[in-house]
Design a protein around this nucleic acid. Structure first.
Lengths: 225, 225
DNA sequence: ACTGCGCGTCAAGAAGATGTCAAGATCCCA
DNA sequence: TGGGATCTTGACATCTTCTTGACGCGCAGT
Protein backbone atom coordinates (compact mmCIF):
# COMPACT_ATOMS: atom_id res chain seq x y z
CA UNK A 1 0.00 0.00 0.00
CA UNK A 2 1.24 3.46 -0.82
CA UNK A 3 2.22 5.41 2.23
CA UNK A 4 1.97 9.20 2.52
CA UNK A 5 3.21 11.54 5.23
CA UNK A 6 1.37 14.85 5.43
CA UNK A 7 3.16 17.70 7.20
CA UNK A 8 0.73 20.54 7.81
CA UNK A 9 -0.23 22.64 10.77
CA UNK A 10 -3.74 23.35 9.58
CA UNK A 11 -5.95 20.75 11.10
CA UNK A 12 -8.63 21.16 8.46
CA UNK A 13 -6.27 20.29 5.65
CA UNK A 14 -4.78 17.36 7.49
CA UNK A 15 -8.21 15.95 8.03
CA UNK A 16 -9.35 16.57 4.48
CA UNK A 17 -6.28 14.88 3.10
CA UNK A 18 -6.51 12.01 5.50
CA UNK A 19 -10.09 11.33 4.51
CA UNK A 20 -9.51 11.63 0.79
CA UNK A 21 -6.32 9.65 0.76
CA UNK A 22 -7.54 6.92 3.05
CA UNK A 23 -10.63 6.51 0.88
CA UNK A 24 -8.33 5.88 -2.05
CA UNK A 25 -6.37 3.25 -0.17
CA UNK A 26 -3.36 5.28 0.79
CA UNK A 27 -1.86 4.85 4.22
CA UNK A 28 -1.64 8.28 5.84
CA UNK A 29 0.40 9.70 8.70
CA UNK A 30 0.20 13.37 9.63
CA UNK A 31 2.52 15.70 11.50
CA UNK A 32 1.67 19.21 12.71
CA UNK A 33 5.16 20.75 12.38
CA UNK A 34 8.55 20.35 10.81
CA UNK A 35 10.24 18.52 13.64
CA UNK A 36 7.51 15.95 13.96
CA UNK A 37 7.38 15.78 10.19
CA UNK A 38 11.01 14.85 9.79
CA UNK A 39 10.63 12.28 12.53
CA UNK A 40 7.55 10.87 10.82
CA UNK A 41 9.37 10.55 7.50
CA UNK A 42 12.22 8.75 9.19
CA UNK A 43 9.85 6.43 11.00
CA UNK A 44 7.24 5.76 8.34
CA UNK A 45 9.40 5.62 5.22
CA UNK A 46 6.61 6.98 3.06
CA UNK A 47 6.44 6.70 -0.70
CA UNK A 48 5.71 10.40 -0.92
CA UNK A 49 5.62 13.46 1.36
CA UNK A 50 3.10 16.28 1.22
CA UNK A 51 4.56 19.35 2.88
CA UNK A 52 2.86 22.61 3.71
CA UNK A 53 5.18 25.59 3.80
CA UNK A 54 4.67 28.05 6.61
CA UNK A 55 4.99 25.62 9.49
CA UNK A 56 5.17 27.06 12.98
CA UNK A 57 8.62 25.77 13.89
CA UNK A 58 10.78 25.55 10.78
CA UNK A 59 11.37 27.09 7.40
CA UNK A 60 9.84 25.00 4.66
CA UNK A 61 13.10 24.85 2.77
CA UNK A 62 14.83 23.39 5.79
CA UNK A 63 12.30 20.62 6.00
CA UNK A 64 12.90 19.85 2.34
CA UNK A 65 16.65 19.73 2.75
CA UNK A 66 16.18 17.70 5.91
CA UNK A 67 14.33 15.04 3.99
CA UNK A 68 16.50 15.26 0.89
CA UNK A 69 19.70 14.85 2.79
CA UNK A 70 18.42 11.47 3.57
CA UNK A 71 16.18 9.99 0.91
CA UNK A 72 14.99 10.74 -2.62
CA UNK A 73 11.35 10.31 -1.56
CA UNK A 74 9.19 12.63 -3.69
CA UNK A 75 8.04 15.80 -1.93
CA UNK A 76 4.97 17.74 -2.98
CA UNK A 77 4.84 21.23 -1.52
CA UNK A 78 1.57 22.89 -0.63
CA UNK A 79 1.47 26.59 -0.09
CA UNK A 80 -0.81 29.55 0.05
CA UNK A 81 1.95 31.79 -1.21
CA UNK A 82 1.96 32.54 -4.88
CA UNK A 83 5.30 34.29 -4.92
CA UNK A 84 7.45 32.87 -7.60
CA UNK A 85 10.66 33.17 -5.62
CA UNK A 86 9.26 30.89 -2.95
CA UNK A 87 8.33 28.27 -5.50
CA UNK A 88 11.73 28.44 -7.09
CA UNK A 89 13.46 28.12 -3.73
CA UNK A 90 11.36 25.12 -2.76
CA UNK A 91 11.86 23.34 -6.07
CA UNK A 92 15.57 24.01 -6.08
CA UNK A 93 15.87 22.76 -2.53
CA UNK A 94 14.68 19.42 -3.80
CA UNK A 95 10.89 19.51 -3.87
CA UNK A 96 9.31 17.64 -6.74
CA UNK A 97 6.15 19.63 -7.21
CA UNK A 98 4.50 22.77 -5.93
CA UNK A 99 0.76 23.18 -5.57
CA UNK A 100 -0.81 26.50 -4.67
CA UNK A 101 -3.70 26.67 -2.23
CA UNK A 102 -6.56 26.59 -2.68
CA UNK A 103 -6.07 23.45 -4.72
CA UNK A 104 -8.44 21.00 -6.28
CA UNK A 105 -8.33 17.63 -4.59
CA UNK A 106 -8.44 15.81 -7.92
CA UNK A 107 -5.44 17.72 -9.14
CA UNK A 108 -3.49 17.05 -5.98
CA UNK A 109 -4.31 13.38 -6.22
CA UNK A 110 -3.19 13.31 -9.84
CA UNK A 111 0.08 15.01 -8.93
CA UNK A 112 0.45 12.54 -6.10
CA UNK A 113 -0.01 9.64 -8.49
CA UNK A 114 2.54 11.19 -10.86
CA UNK A 115 5.05 11.57 -8.04
CA UNK A 116 4.56 8.04 -6.77
CA UNK A 117 4.76 6.61 -10.28
CA UNK A 118 8.11 8.28 -10.83
CA UNK A 119 9.40 7.32 -7.44
CA UNK A 120 8.71 3.63 -7.75
CA UNK A 121 9.10 3.00 -11.45
CA UNK A 122 12.79 3.59 -11.52
CA UNK A 123 14.22 0.74 -9.55
CA UNK A 124 12.40 -2.52 -9.29
CA UNK A 125 14.48 -5.61 -9.57
CA UNK A 126 11.85 -7.79 -7.97
CA UNK A 127 13.71 -11.01 -7.32
CA UNK A 128 17.31 -11.75 -6.57
CA UNK A 129 18.29 -15.39 -6.79
CA UNK A 130 21.18 -17.28 -5.32
CA UNK A 131 22.00 -20.94 -5.06
CA UNK A 132 20.49 -21.23 -1.62
CA UNK A 133 17.57 -18.80 -1.63
CA UNK A 134 15.78 -16.14 -3.61
CA UNK A 135 14.68 -12.73 -2.42
CA UNK A 136 11.36 -11.42 -3.72
CA UNK A 137 11.60 -7.70 -3.15
CA UNK A 138 8.05 -7.01 -4.28
CA UNK A 139 6.48 -9.62 -2.01
CA UNK A 140 9.02 -8.94 0.74
CA UNK A 141 9.75 -12.63 1.06
CA UNK A 142 12.76 -14.86 1.09
CA UNK A 143 12.35 -18.43 -0.05
CA UNK A 144 14.95 -21.11 0.38
CA UNK A 145 15.73 -23.30 -2.59
CA UNK A 146 14.13 -26.25 -0.79
CA UNK A 147 10.84 -24.35 -0.81
CA UNK A 148 10.60 -23.36 2.84
CA UNK A 149 10.31 -19.68 3.44
CA UNK A 150 12.42 -17.62 5.78
CA UNK A 151 10.87 -15.60 8.57
CA UNK A 152 12.50 -12.20 8.88
CA UNK A 153 11.62 -9.46 11.34
CA UNK A 154 10.98 -6.01 9.85
CA UNK A 155 14.44 -4.76 10.70
CA UNK A 156 16.12 -7.88 9.40
CA UNK A 157 14.18 -7.51 6.15
CA UNK A 158 15.09 -3.87 5.69
CA UNK A 159 18.72 -4.64 6.23
CA UNK A 160 18.65 -7.45 3.71
CA UNK A 161 16.70 -5.34 1.25
CA UNK A 162 19.19 -2.50 1.28
CA UNK A 163 22.05 -4.90 0.77
CA UNK A 164 20.28 -6.94 -1.89
CA UNK A 165 19.18 -3.90 -3.87
CA UNK A 166 22.81 -2.93 -4.07
CA UNK A 167 23.95 -6.43 -4.79
CA UNK A 168 27.69 -6.55 -5.31
CA UNK A 169 28.23 -3.02 -4.09
CA UNK A 170 29.87 -2.23 -0.80
CA UNK A 171 27.55 -0.40 1.57
CA UNK A 172 29.17 1.51 4.37
CA UNK A 173 28.01 0.99 7.91
CA UNK A 174 26.92 4.62 8.03
CA UNK A 175 24.73 4.20 5.03
CA UNK A 176 23.20 0.97 6.27
CA UNK A 177 22.39 2.51 9.62
CA UNK A 178 21.00 5.52 7.83
CA UNK A 179 18.83 3.51 5.48
CA UNK A 180 17.59 0.97 7.98
CA UNK A 181 17.37 2.78 11.29
CA UNK A 182 17.10 6.34 10.02
CA UNK A 183 19.09 9.47 10.67
CA UNK A 184 20.61 9.80 14.11
CA UNK A 185 21.75 6.18 14.30
CA UNK A 186 24.88 6.68 12.22
CA UNK A 187 27.22 5.40 14.87
CA UNK A 188 25.27 2.57 16.47
CA UNK A 189 27.38 -0.05 14.76
CA UNK A 190 26.49 -2.64 17.35
CA UNK A 191 22.97 -2.80 15.89
CA UNK A 192 24.52 -3.81 12.62
CA UNK A 193 26.60 -6.51 14.19
CA UNK A 194 23.59 -8.01 15.91
CA UNK A 195 21.29 -7.92 12.91
CA UNK A 196 23.77 -9.01 10.32
CA UNK A 197 24.44 -12.02 12.50
CA UNK A 198 20.72 -12.75 12.77
CA UNK A 199 20.16 -12.56 9.03
CA UNK A 200 23.19 -14.76 8.44
CA UNK A 201 21.87 -17.34 10.85
CA UNK A 202 18.68 -17.46 8.80
CA UNK A 203 20.17 -17.41 5.32
CA UNK A 204 23.74 -18.59 5.22
CA UNK A 205 24.41 -22.31 4.77
CA UNK A 206 27.25 -21.89 7.24
CA UNK A 207 26.65 -18.74 9.30
CA UNK A 208 30.17 -18.80 10.70
CA UNK A 209 31.60 -18.55 7.18
CA UNK A 210 29.41 -16.06 5.37
CA UNK A 211 29.10 -16.51 1.65
CA UNK A 212 26.44 -13.95 0.80
CA UNK A 213 26.56 -11.26 3.47
CA UNK A 214 30.21 -10.41 3.39
CA UNK A 215 32.01 -8.22 5.89
CA UNK A 216 34.53 -5.74 4.61
CA UNK A 217 36.27 -4.91 7.87
CA UNK A 218 36.46 -1.22 8.58
CA UNK A 219 34.27 -0.36 5.64
CA UNK A 220 30.91 -2.05 5.64
CA UNK A 221 29.04 -4.99 4.19
CA UNK A 222 28.40 -6.35 0.76
CA UNK A 223 25.78 -8.71 -0.59
CA UNK A 224 27.29 -11.04 -3.09
CA UNK A 225 25.17 -13.64 -4.82
CA UNK B 1 24.67 19.54 -21.81
CA UNK B 2 21.03 19.16 -20.93
CA UNK B 3 18.80 18.77 -23.95
CA UNK B 4 15.19 19.97 -24.11
CA UNK B 5 12.54 19.41 -26.77
CA UNK B 6 9.80 22.04 -26.83
CA UNK B 7 6.56 21.06 -28.57
CA UNK B 8 4.40 24.14 -29.05
CA UNK B 9 2.52 25.66 -31.95
CA UNK B 10 2.73 29.22 -30.68
CA UNK B 11 5.76 30.74 -32.23
CA UNK B 12 6.11 33.38 -29.54
CA UNK B 13 6.42 30.80 -26.77
CA UNK B 14 8.84 28.68 -28.72
CA UNK B 15 11.04 31.66 -29.25
CA UNK B 16 10.84 32.84 -25.66
CA UNK B 17 11.75 29.40 -24.37
CA UNK B 18 14.51 28.95 -26.86
CA UNK B 19 16.09 32.24 -25.86
CA UNK B 20 15.78 31.67 -22.13
CA UNK B 21 16.90 28.07 -22.20
CA UNK B 22 19.78 28.64 -24.57
CA UNK B 23 20.98 31.47 -22.37
CA UNK B 24 21.11 28.99 -19.49
CA UNK B 25 23.12 26.49 -21.47
CA UNK B 26 20.38 24.11 -22.41
CA UNK B 27 20.32 22.65 -25.87
CA UNK B 28 16.90 23.34 -27.39
CA UNK B 29 14.95 21.78 -30.22
CA UNK B 30 11.42 22.91 -31.06
CA UNK B 31 8.55 21.28 -32.90
CA UNK B 32 5.33 23.00 -33.98
CA UNK B 33 2.97 20.02 -33.68
CA UNK B 34 2.52 16.60 -32.17
CA UNK B 35 3.78 14.57 -35.08
CA UNK B 36 6.95 16.58 -35.43
CA UNK B 37 7.24 16.57 -31.65
CA UNK B 38 7.23 12.81 -31.34
CA UNK B 39 9.74 12.61 -34.14
CA UNK B 40 11.93 15.19 -32.44
CA UNK B 41 11.87 13.29 -29.16
CA UNK B 42 12.81 10.08 -30.93
CA UNK B 43 15.60 11.81 -32.79
CA UNK B 44 17.01 14.09 -30.11
CA UNK B 45 16.64 11.86 -27.03
CA UNK B 46 16.17 14.90 -24.81
CA UNK B 47 16.56 14.93 -21.05
CA UNK B 48 13.16 16.56 -20.70
CA UNK B 49 10.19 17.48 -22.88
CA UNK B 50 8.09 20.64 -22.63
CA UNK B 51 4.71 20.03 -24.21
CA UNK B 52 1.96 22.51 -24.91
CA UNK B 53 -1.51 21.03 -24.98
CA UNK B 54 -3.83 22.23 -27.70
CA UNK B 55 -1.66 21.35 -30.65
CA UNK B 56 -3.21 21.59 -34.10
CA UNK B 57 -2.84 17.96 -35.10
CA UNK B 58 -3.07 15.76 -32.02
CA UNK B 59 -4.62 15.50 -28.60
CA UNK B 60 -2.12 16.38 -25.90
CA UNK B 61 -2.75 13.16 -24.07
CA UNK B 62 -1.87 11.19 -27.17
CA UNK B 63 1.45 12.95 -27.41
CA UNK B 64 2.13 12.07 -23.80
CA UNK B 65 1.29 8.41 -24.24
CA UNK B 66 3.27 8.42 -27.47
CA UNK B 67 6.37 9.51 -25.60
CA UNK B 68 5.68 7.38 -22.55
CA UNK B 69 5.23 4.19 -24.50
CA UNK B 70 8.80 4.56 -25.34
CA UNK B 71 10.86 6.35 -22.70
CA UNK B 72 10.53 7.64 -19.15
CA UNK B 73 11.84 11.07 -20.16
CA UNK B 74 10.20 13.70 -17.93
CA UNK B 75 7.38 15.65 -19.58
CA UNK B 76 6.31 19.11 -18.42
CA UNK B 77 2.92 20.12 -19.77
CA UNK B 78 2.13 23.73 -20.56
CA UNK B 79 -1.46 24.76 -20.99
CA UNK B 80 -3.78 27.72 -21.01
CA UNK B 81 -6.63 25.58 -19.79
CA UNK B 82 -7.29 25.65 -16.10
CA UNK B 83 -9.78 22.85 -16.09
CA UNK B 84 -8.85 20.36 -13.46
CA UNK B 85 -10.01 17.37 -15.48
CA UNK B 86 -7.50 18.21 -18.20
CA UNK B 87 -4.66 18.42 -15.69
CA UNK B 88 -5.66 15.13 -14.16
CA UNK B 89 -5.85 13.46 -17.55
CA UNK B 90 -2.44 14.76 -18.57
CA UNK B 91 -0.78 13.77 -15.31
CA UNK B 92 -2.37 10.34 -15.36
CA UNK B 93 -1.31 9.82 -18.95
CA UNK B 94 2.24 10.10 -17.73
CA UNK B 95 3.10 13.78 -17.59
CA UNK B 96 5.40 14.77 -14.75
CA UNK B 97 4.29 18.31 -14.16
CA UNK B 98 1.65 20.74 -15.33
CA UNK B 99 2.15 24.49 -15.60
CA UNK B 100 -0.70 26.85 -16.38
CA UNK B 101 -0.21 29.75 -18.77
CA UNK B 102 0.59 32.49 -18.28
CA UNK B 103 3.58 31.18 -16.33
CA UNK B 104 6.59 32.83 -14.80
CA UNK B 105 9.78 31.93 -16.58
CA UNK B 106 11.65 31.47 -13.32
CA UNK B 107 9.09 29.03 -12.06
CA UNK B 108 9.17 27.06 -15.27
CA UNK B 109 12.94 26.93 -15.13
CA UNK B 110 12.81 25.71 -11.53
CA UNK B 111 10.33 23.01 -12.47
CA UNK B 112 12.56 22.10 -15.35
CA UNK B 113 15.52 21.73 -13.05
CA UNK B 114 13.46 19.59 -10.71
CA UNK B 115 12.39 17.34 -13.56
CA UNK B 116 15.90 16.96 -14.92
CA UNK B 117 17.30 16.29 -11.48
CA UNK B 118 14.85 13.43 -11.00
CA UNK B 119 15.37 12.08 -14.48
CA UNK B 120 19.10 11.81 -14.22
CA UNK B 121 19.45 10.16 -10.85
CA UNK B 122 23.09 10.02 -11.74
CA UNK B 123 25.15 7.26 -10.25
CA UNK B 124 28.67 7.56 -11.54
CA UNK B 125 30.12 4.11 -11.89
CA UNK B 126 33.64 4.75 -13.05
CA UNK B 127 35.59 1.57 -13.44
CA UNK B 128 39.24 1.61 -14.26
CA UNK B 129 40.47 -1.39 -16.18
CA UNK B 130 43.92 -2.72 -16.72
CA UNK B 131 45.22 -5.93 -18.22
CA UNK B 132 45.47 -7.61 -14.86
CA UNK B 133 42.55 -6.21 -12.86
CA UNK B 134 39.73 -3.70 -12.87
CA UNK B 135 38.82 -1.25 -10.16
CA UNK B 136 35.11 -0.61 -9.56
CA UNK B 137 35.03 2.64 -7.65
CA UNK B 138 31.27 2.57 -7.03
CA UNK B 139 31.26 -0.95 -5.61
CA UNK B 140 34.60 -0.36 -3.90
CA UNK B 141 35.93 -3.54 -5.37
CA UNK B 142 38.92 -4.77 -7.29
CA UNK B 143 38.57 -7.82 -9.48
CA UNK B 144 41.45 -9.63 -11.08
CA UNK B 145 41.11 -10.58 -14.73
CA UNK B 146 40.89 -14.23 -13.72
CA UNK B 147 37.70 -13.42 -11.79
CA UNK B 148 39.00 -13.66 -8.25
CA UNK B 149 38.50 -10.55 -6.21
CA UNK B 150 41.09 -8.73 -4.22
CA UNK B 151 40.71 -8.08 -0.54
CA UNK B 152 41.84 -4.58 0.43
CA UNK B 153 41.84 -3.02 3.87
CA UNK B 154 40.25 0.43 4.19
CA UNK B 155 43.57 2.23 4.06
CA UNK B 156 44.79 0.19 1.15
CA UNK B 157 41.58 0.93 -0.71
CA UNK B 158 41.73 4.65 -0.05
CA UNK B 159 45.28 4.80 -1.25
CA UNK B 160 44.44 2.95 -4.43
CA UNK B 161 41.34 5.04 -4.98
CA UNK B 162 43.22 8.33 -4.79
CA UNK B 163 45.83 7.07 -7.20
CA UNK B 164 43.34 5.47 -9.57
CA UNK B 165 41.07 8.51 -9.69
CA UNK B 166 44.09 10.48 -10.81
CA UNK B 167 45.23 7.78 -13.16
CA UNK B 168 48.34 8.83 -15.04
CA UNK B 169 49.00 11.86 -12.86
CA UNK B 170 51.76 12.12 -10.35
CA UNK B 171 50.55 12.46 -6.78
CA UNK B 172 52.99 13.85 -4.26
CA UNK B 173 53.61 12.03 -1.02
CA UNK B 174 52.26 15.02 0.88
CA UNK B 175 49.03 14.89 -1.02
CA UNK B 176 48.61 11.15 -0.65
CA UNK B 177 49.24 11.32 3.07
CA UNK B 178 46.84 14.19 3.33
CA UNK B 179 44.10 12.50 1.33
CA UNK B 180 44.38 9.08 2.91
CA UNK B 181 45.47 9.70 6.50
CA UNK B 182 44.20 13.22 6.88
CA UNK B 183 45.86 16.43 7.93
CA UNK B 184 48.70 16.11 10.38
CA UNK B 185 50.27 13.09 8.71
CA UNK B 186 51.98 15.03 5.95
CA UNK B 187 55.44 13.77 6.84
CA UNK B 188 54.81 10.15 7.81
CA UNK B 189 56.24 8.87 4.58
CA UNK B 190 56.94 5.48 6.10
CA UNK B 191 53.20 4.80 6.11
CA UNK B 192 53.23 5.26 2.39
CA UNK B 193 56.09 2.87 1.89
CA UNK B 194 54.34 0.19 3.91
CA UNK B 195 50.96 0.54 2.25
CA UNK B 196 52.14 0.99 -1.30
CA UNK B 197 54.07 -2.23 -0.84
CA UNK B 198 50.97 -3.99 0.47
CA UNK B 199 48.81 -2.88 -2.43
CA UNK B 200 51.50 -3.89 -4.88
CA UNK B 201 51.72 -7.32 -3.33
CA UNK B 202 48.00 -7.72 -3.93
CA UNK B 203 47.76 -6.24 -7.41
CA UNK B 204 51.03 -6.32 -9.27
CA UNK B 205 51.90 -9.42 -11.28
CA UNK B 206 55.47 -8.95 -10.09
CA UNK B 207 55.45 -6.82 -6.93
CA UNK B 208 59.21 -6.30 -7.06
CA UNK B 209 58.92 -4.67 -10.47
CA UNK B 210 55.85 -2.46 -10.28
CA UNK B 211 53.97 -1.88 -13.48
CA UNK B 212 50.92 -0.03 -12.21
CA UNK B 213 51.88 1.72 -8.99
CA UNK B 214 54.98 3.52 -10.06
CA UNK B 215 57.40 5.30 -7.77
CA UNK B 216 58.65 8.69 -8.83
CA UNK B 217 61.72 8.98 -6.60
CA UNK B 218 61.74 12.06 -4.46
CA UNK B 219 58.31 13.11 -5.69
CA UNK B 220 55.53 10.66 -5.14
CA UNK B 221 53.59 7.93 -6.86
CA UNK B 222 51.67 7.51 -10.07
CA UNK B 223 49.05 5.02 -11.15
CA UNK B 224 49.58 4.00 -14.72
CA UNK B 225 47.24 1.54 -16.39
C1' DA C 1 84.91 2.81 -0.39
C1' DC C 2 82.23 5.46 2.77
C1' DT C 3 78.20 7.93 4.04
C1' DG C 4 73.63 9.86 3.91
C1' DC C 5 69.27 9.45 2.04
C1' DG C 6 65.16 7.55 0.14
C1' DC C 7 62.79 3.47 -0.66
C1' DG C 8 61.23 -1.47 0.01
C1' DT C 9 60.56 -5.18 3.34
C1' DC C 10 59.34 -7.49 7.47
C1' DA C 11 57.20 -8.66 11.83
C1' DA C 12 55.27 -7.82 16.41
C1' DG C 13 52.49 -5.38 19.60
C1' DA C 14 48.75 -1.90 20.01
C1' DA C 15 44.50 -0.36 18.67
C1' DG C 16 40.30 -1.03 16.82
C1' DA C 17 36.46 -3.68 14.62
C1' DT C 18 33.61 -7.59 14.46
C1' DG C 19 31.09 -11.90 16.07
C1' DT C 20 28.51 -13.77 19.72
C1' DC C 21 25.58 -14.30 23.57
C1' DA C 22 22.06 -13.23 26.72
C1' DA C 23 19.39 -10.41 29.50
C1' DG C 24 16.38 -6.47 29.90
C1' DA C 25 13.09 -3.08 27.60
C1' DT C 26 9.58 -2.27 24.45
C1' DC C 27 6.07 -2.96 21.25
C1' DC C 28 2.04 -5.13 19.39
C1' DC C 29 -1.88 -8.03 19.15
C1' DA C 30 -5.32 -10.82 21.09
C1' DT D 1 -4.10 -6.85 30.59
C1' DG D 2 -1.12 -10.59 29.36
C1' DG D 3 2.28 -13.03 26.39
C1' DG D 4 5.07 -13.43 22.44
C1' DA D 5 7.87 -11.30 19.23
C1' DT D 6 11.07 -7.80 18.42
C1' DC D 7 14.30 -4.38 19.49
C1' DT D 8 17.99 -2.48 22.48
C1' DT D 9 22.02 -2.81 25.29
C1' DG D 10 26.27 -4.37 27.46
C1' DA D 11 30.02 -7.65 28.09
C1' DC D 12 33.42 -10.42 26.26
C1' DA D 13 36.21 -13.36 22.91
C1' DT D 14 38.20 -13.18 18.48
C1' DC D 15 39.94 -11.43 14.50
C1' DT D 16 41.70 -7.71 11.39
C1' DT D 17 44.08 -3.70 10.65
C1' DC D 18 47.18 -0.06 11.91
C1' DT D 19 51.32 1.60 13.76
C1' DT D 20 56.01 1.34 14.73
C1' DG D 21 60.85 0.35 14.61
C1' DA D 22 64.59 -2.27 12.61
C1' DC D 23 67.07 -3.64 8.69
C1' DG D 24 68.73 -4.13 3.70
C1' DC D 25 69.41 -2.29 -0.69
C1' DG D 26 70.72 0.97 -4.22
C1' DC D 27 72.11 5.43 -5.56
C1' DA D 28 74.60 9.92 -5.48
C1' DG D 29 77.93 12.79 -3.60
C1' DT D 30 82.46 12.91 -1.16
Amino acid sequence: MTKVVVIDDEDAICRALRINLTARDYEVATAPNGTAGLAAVARERPDVVILDLGLPDMEGVDVITGVRGWTPTPIIVLSAREREAVKVAALDAGADDYVTKPFGMDELLARLRAAVRRGTSADDAPTICTEDFSIDLAAKRVIRTDGSDVRLTPTEWQLLEVLARNSGRLITQRQLLHDVWGPGYDTETNYLRVYVAQVRRKLEPDPTRPRYLLTEPGMGYRFDR
